[in-house]
Design a protein around this nucleic acid. Sequence first.
DNA 1: CCTTGACCTTCCTGTAACAATAAGGTTTAT
DNA 2: ATAAACCTTATTGTTACAGGAAGGTCAAGG
Lengths: 277, 277
Amino acid sequence: MDIQKLTIGQMAELNRVTRQTLRHYDMEELLKPYDTDPETGYRYYHVNQSARLDMIQYLKFCGMSLDQIKEQLQCADTNEIQHFLTQQLGFIDQSILKLNQSRRAILRAIENYDRYKLLPQNPEVFHERLPARKIYTHTSQINFFNQEESGYEMMLRELKQSLLDRNLPVGYFCNVGTIIRKEYLARRELCSNEVFVFLEDDFTGIEQPEVLPGGQYVCICSDDFYQEADLALRLLDYINEQGYTIIGDYICEVIADLPFFDKSPRNMVYKIQIPTL
Amino acid sequence: MDIQKLTIGQMAELNRVTRQTLRHYDMEELLKPYDTDPETGYRYYHVNQSARLDMIQYLKFCGMSLDQIKEQLQCADTNEIQHFLTQQLGFIDQSILKLNQSRRAILRAIENYDRYKLLPQNPEVFHERLPARKIYTHTSQINFFNQEESGYEMMLRELKQSLLDRNLPVGYFCNVGTIIRKEYLARRELCSNEVFVFLEDDFTGIEQPEVLPGGQYVCICSDDFYQEADLALRLLDYINEQGYTIIGDYICEVIADLPFFDKSPRNMVYKIQIPTL
DNA sequence: CCTTGACCTTCCTGTAACAATAAGGTTTAT
DNA sequence: ATAAACCTTATTGTTACAGGAAGGTCAAGG
């Protein structure tokens, strides 16, 4: 192989790129062949041009676009290059952060389905010890229990917008829930204008998030959206009968949200939880 | 706002997506408006359709393509969905791994430039204590010192291909170096047919990488490719004069590779290092 | 000298997930 | 009635190439 005059195919093979890529870089003025036959248009490369190709690939690997790379290879100031690299580092760190969020979002989805499968088939009261959980709450004008499903949907839209406004990852818009505050509960008043999402334990995007206390809860599950009020009252009756004391807010957590199966709006499984002593 | 019949703009605003996005999802059969006026073509959405949009965004956030999402939303088997999510987790983990490699590649580039700036202007001998360093070595038919620059370029091409063949990240193709083994050195024979890249300390992709021993080195730097042989001999003379003993292989490390400034092939700064006692 | 096969050229289309714009029709409020 | 705000379809652009068509070029062998 003549090192001095490589055809595009040889140059491509030597550097493990495709011919198309080299043509593309030629067009984009990123890497011009050192010679082009004016008659045939054949491109001829020199092996030394690999250095520039290396640098292009390296910068590409660092996450730069071809335009950015072109700019960098033109600018001769090392300070500027260092500044650019530092900036690029920031971008990458952000990407990693995002991917980690995606990762956790997927893990949560998988957990969701696991929990969904383990649920008791019929709605019956059970006891559970739950850990403390951080939440982000949105307060709406709408009272959940006075509304049709569309009202709930609207509350969720508000919550979502609220999350987006605070730059909280949409991934969190997965496990949501509603709250009935203790005061209302004491009066058997089903009144809830607050929806929330669970935050990860290590999430620090919010200064002082509300925390649902850990401890003993009485719970009940269902997949019937319209049954919640009934179940809530049943749970309150149960608590009375057993002589327990309610020591915190009522929450209704969406365990699994499955808009897969049919065209009905929300197709979900939820778990009502009341902390008791 | 009539919740029952949202125009595309209202639906878009409610969910913080653009109208284009909704039209796109309509075309792609991902999310059809529940009603379309046959005369005007106006799309009308119901707020409850947000649930599906949520799911789409969630899966998108998990890194799925629209096609994959469509498929998932059609398939009703939770097992399959879980399997898919697990698979997706694998992809994400890979992406994170790659990005971390990019991250380190950038860090090394930044270090490179820092070192480049701190280099002594004239080639003079200095002493340095260097840590142990892992390397990946490629042995070529070419003897570096018998060749023009093009020969060196060819050695690098071989190294690069060798790296790619072993699925080692191209990011590693950054700090390279050449070796003269101790035996040759003892005979003042400048003979090197080995090039290498440095591996990160925590890199585990290679079973038993060669390790350059940590310890005291005598060094000299230059930016003149053709001066290496001279400097090498000068360094050997120095070692003799001072009565030091050579206790390992000679290495010539490329400190900074700057194909930015002009069209000359390699424009680099290197540091010759000989371990001594 | 001719042929064959490998190589090269330019030009065009396609990818993913929309964004942007143009040209034109609809709705709503004043 | 008219303007503002909204909607429609259709086309082009984005990134970094991949793939293919139609046709020219090169080196080796008969």
